[in-house]
Structure formats: C-alpha cells, structure tokens
Amino acid sequence: MCPNRIRTEQEIHGRHGRPITDQDAHEINRVEELSYDLKIHEVMSKNLQTASPDISLSDVLKILRINRISGVPVIQDEKLVGVISIEDIVRALQNNDLTETVGQYMTRELVTVASFDSIVKAMQTFAEKHVGRLPVVDEEKKLVGMITKGDITRGILVALQKDYKAEEVRRYRASHLFEDIISDRTTLVLRYNIKAQDFTHGGNASSHIKRALLRLGADAQIARRCGIAVYEAETNLIIHTTHGGILKLEVEPHRITMSTTDDGPGIPDVEQVLQPGYSTATDQVREMGFGAGMGLVNIKRCVDNMELESTVGKGTKLIMRIHVPAENFNARKEG
C-alpha cells in the first residue's frame, strides 16, 4: 500500500501519501480504506441542476425528465433552501396541484453533507435518513454539488483503477522479487550510513527498513520486530560511536540479517552491556529518553539470534538475524 512520503496537497484531500500502518497492511481492504480516504468533493457531481422555489412543479418535472434525475436542490438568493424530488411531486399529483410552486411542496428539512467529509459519512447518512441523494455544502454552507450512491460507486471504481496502477502493481512487483529473480542464492542488501550524534535523523533508517519489508511482502509482525531491533541498533550508533557507522539489512527469502558496524570506541565488557539497565549514556542523552540500558535487551527479545563482537579502539559489530516463515516474500516455488 501507500508508503510514507513527503506530505502533499493530495494528502489533505485525497488518499495519496497516506502513511501505512500495521493495520492497513493486514486487515483493512482497499474499498473500506477508500471509503475513509476519498472525500465527498472528489466524487460528487458538480454539474448542478437547481430549481428556484418560484417555478411550477410541472417545470421541475421537465428538468427531472430531461436530465433523468430524481430530485434537485432548491436555491433562493444563492442559498440552499430545500430539495424537490419525485416523491414531493407525487404528493402534489394526488392533490392535482402541478401548477403550484416548488416552494409549496419542497422538502425544507435539509439533510446535507460537507464536501470535505469522507464518503463514508455520506454512506452513513444515506442509511440513516433513507434518502438517495444529498446536497453537498462547503465550509460556508454554500451548495457545491450533489452526491448519490451511484457517485460513490463510480468514485471508488475510478480511485481503485488509478490506485491499482500506481500502487498495487508496485507492491506486487516488490513482493514477487524473490520469485522472479532466479539464482542459487538471492539477497537484497540495503545500506544506511548513520552519523554519530545525529538525533535529528534518528529512526529514519528503521522506518525505511520496516516499510521496505512490508512492501516486499513480509508479515507485519516480522516487519515490526525488525523495526524495533534496527531502531535500537541505529540509536546505539548515534549515541555511542565516535564516527557513526553502517547499518545493513540483508533480505533473503528465508532469513533477514541486520547488522551494524562502527570503528570505535568499542565496548570493554560485552557481558556487562547485555545486562538490562546498564548504560553508559550521558545525562544529556538520558534526558531525551535514551540510555535506559534496554536497547540490546530489546534487540535480543525481537530477533532469533544476536551476536555482539567488540574490540576497544577498533570498533563493534552487531549481527541480528530473524528467520522468515516460508509464506513471507513469496519464496515458495508454485505456479
């Protein structure tokens, strides 16, 4: 699905650029998601047929017939004052009253939806109020369009079609990477250079890794475990190294290997740093909430296998491995 990217204008009004969550990846299907992401103004009809309250019902009937619609909003002095529909005209017919004005028979009890709301809001209103069409108003309560169930269906189909090309195809391709490329051993390697003391970009590499794994078709739980492990390792490079280091992710169909390497200062006692709560972080770093002495403990908890090697004056290498169940990354040889 959609990855994080720089916030765009469309993010406010449309669905593009919406950040992915574990939930999205797993439970919500596309149409449900679209019903929240698509805004009413994106699907409503803007070609407005309106009526004035002073015209006769037989004139309205003409408008309805020519445009093949079942109702129109009634506008007076640029303001929405009611809706006149087939039902209202049927009532007038019973009284033999087609020469009467729209104002006499229109429905004045106004149910409207806001143009900036999600289409799910319109769907709820259709269900609650048992109506088939709703006037759409903007922030200033001015009529800007009409929405019907047909508009919603059409809007979702159009969005799905656009979306499919832009996003699903990309995800599909990524998730079939390992199936499409044939070799005796395929490995995808991602490298990130982490700078010492660069708290501003702390966590960026981890977010990118988590997203890459989801896009490659990894299970949300595995992506989460990798994200946490790699975040702690990334943070360690930022806090403790002299010149930063390299964070590497190697993805294979059956295994994910994450590692960090740096050139110092090195850890004098590797056993000691594995103790929960042991930390050498400065007070300044602790004030930011780092240095709880839980980083390596968290990593151990999240990965299947962790190796830490260090030489004072030379540097540290941390290797973390997670075994991947066969259903991830479409690694199976079928069809």
Binding site: N4, P19, F199, T200, G202, G203, N204, S206, S207, K210, R224, G227, I228, Y231, M288, G289, F290
Partner: peptide, 9 residues
C-alpha cells in the same frame, strides 16, 4: 523529534 520515530515504528 525522536518520539515521532518511535511512535511511527
């Protein structure tokens, strides 16, 4: 700033 990275992960 770093709380955002943690929350997003």
């Amino acid at each position: 700033l770093n709380i955002v990275a943690v929350a997003a992960l």
